[in-house]
Amino acid sequence: MYAAVAIALFMTFALALIRAIAGPSVFDRVLSLNVIGTKTILLIAVLGFATDRYDFIDIALVYAVLNLIGTVAVLRYLVGDKERS
């Protein structure tokens, strides 16, 4: 089951990547970034379970937090960008 879920997550990841690369607007990309971030967290968690290394959850945790920071940074950039111009 882990394997199936991991593959599913990876495919999600890949599809989001396509959207991130294709665009067209910046917001699409940020959205994909967000999705990819979440999916990576889940992927890491699942991988940890699949290999019986439960410590990996720590990484997932940190990831979740950092993902938020990254998104907020991009948003701040976009908002700041717009309001100035």
Binding site: S25, F27, N34, L61, V65, L68, T71, K82
Partner: peptide
């Protein structure tokens, strides 16, 4: 992790949509 995701994901999605609309 779930709590973080539950908060972070909708919030950033919301902020993103808002930023997009304002832009």
């Amino acid at each position: 992790v779930l709590i973080v995701a539950l908060f972070a994901s909708p919030a950033s999605c919301h902020a993103l949509a808002r930023a997009a609309f304002r832009s």
